[in-house]
Amino acid sequence: MLTVPVRQLGESERATVERVLDRDPYAGAQVAERITAHGLNWWRADGRVYGHGAGHRVDSVVWSGAHLVPVCAAPTAVAAFAELLAGEPRLCSSIIGRADAVLDLWARLGPHWGPARDVRPDQPLLVTADAPPIRPDPGVRLVQSREVDQLFPAAVAMYAEEVGVSPLQDDGGRGYRRRIADLVRSRRAYARFVGDRVVFKAELAIVTRHTAQVQGVWVDPEFRGRGLAAPAMAAVTLDALRRVAPTVSLYVNDFNTPARRAYARCGFRAAGTFATVLF
């Protein structure tokens, strides 16, 4: 029996959840997008939202679905969420969020859920609200629906390189291809082409009223070291700020020095540290 003030939240408490998410619009972006699209009814959203707080008050939440995402979770809330989740089988493929909460959560859940495939404890969270100070690459543009076939191999290469497993292994890539096609259709996928070949790509993987979060940034290995990434990212950032959201955010592995240098040239500034646990 749980001894901590944690409970599943429903649609009637949507405004309360949104207030918590607004307190950390970058760590809460993934959850906020899901709730905007599907509400808090778990059978529609493919995930559950649990809240922590005394009585009817909610001071922090955690999204439990394909990903486990704590938001505004102080140590007491992390302990409460871990006590709840430790009694359930692991369903998520990753734990993502502010590093302190993620690493504390994993320290508590690890003995129950078994080993992780990878733990990335230091991922700088970067944010900008300003137009890039460098000239954007005019060759970077939104991908068209007829170009999904050209984009998909680059997306697969990026995923395998970044995550460490192939997105083709479970269903032959059908689900991942649908995701890429959806991003293209919603005007959230960018690329630079050389002929029919994608040499740079990035997506606005998460969009809320506060931020557009960039993921899937990739440069073809043959084109790395040529100064392509920073102007390409400047083009993505400028379009996102003009057309999509008031800020652009992303998180990057601390050891990825070239990427961090490119983002700094585009005007991104540190806004904390994320961590990711991969299964």
Rank of each mutant, 00 (worst) to 15 (best):
P70R: 03
P70L: 01
V71Q: 02
V71R: 03
C72D: 07
C72N: 05
A73M: 01
A73L: 00
A73D: 02
A73S: 07
A73R: 03
A74R: 15
A74N: 08
A74V: 14
A74I: 06
P75C: 02
P75L: 00
V78S: 00
A79Y: 00
A80D: 08
A80L: 05
A80I: 07
F81I: 08
F81V: 04
F81Y: 07
F81M: 05
A82D: 09
A82L: 05
L84A: 06
L84G: 00
L85I: 01
A86H: 02
G87P: 04
G87A: 10
G87D: 07
E88L: 13
R90M: 11
L91R: 15
L91C: 14
L91W: 11
C92T: 10
C92P: 06
S93H: 15
S93M: 12
S93I: 09
S93D: 13
S94A: 15
I95Q: 07
I95A: 07
I95P: 13
I95T: 12
I95E: 12
I96F: 08
I96L: 12
I96H: 10
I96A: 12
G97A: 08
A99D: 09
A99Q: 11
A99W: 06
D100Q: 12
D100A: 14
A101Y: 06
V102Q: 02
V102A: 06
L103C: 06
D104T: 03
D104F: 01
D104A: 15
D104Y: 02
W106K: 11
W106S: 08
A107L: 04
A107D: 15
R108V: 01
R108N: 11
R108I: 01
L109I: 00
H112I: 04
H112L: 04
W113N: 09
G114N: 10
G114S: 07
G114C: 07
P115F: 10
P115E: 08
A116Q: 08
R117D: 03
D118A: 14
R120W: 03
R120A: 00
R120E: 02
P121L: 06
D122M: 11
D122A: 09
D122W: 11
D122N: 12
P124C: 03
P124H: 09
P124N: 06
L125K: 11
V127E: 07
A129R: 09
A129W: 04
A129G: 11
A129L: 02
D130Q: 04
D130P: 00
D130T: 01
A131D: 13
A131R: 04
P132Q: 03
P132Y: 00
R135C: 08
P136S: 07
D137N: 15
D137F: 11
P138E: 01
G139F: 11
G139L: 13
V140S: 09
V140H: 05
R141L: 12
R141I: 08
R141S: 15
L142M: 14
L142F: 09
L142V: 09
V143H: 10
V143Y: 12
Q144F: 09
Q144L: 11
S145M: 11
S145T: 14
S145E: 15
S145K: 14
S145Y: 04
R146Y: 13
R146N: 14
R146T: 13
E147M: 14
V148D: 12
V148A: 15
D149S: 13
D149V: 12
D149I: 06
D149P: 13
Q150I: 02
Q150G: 08
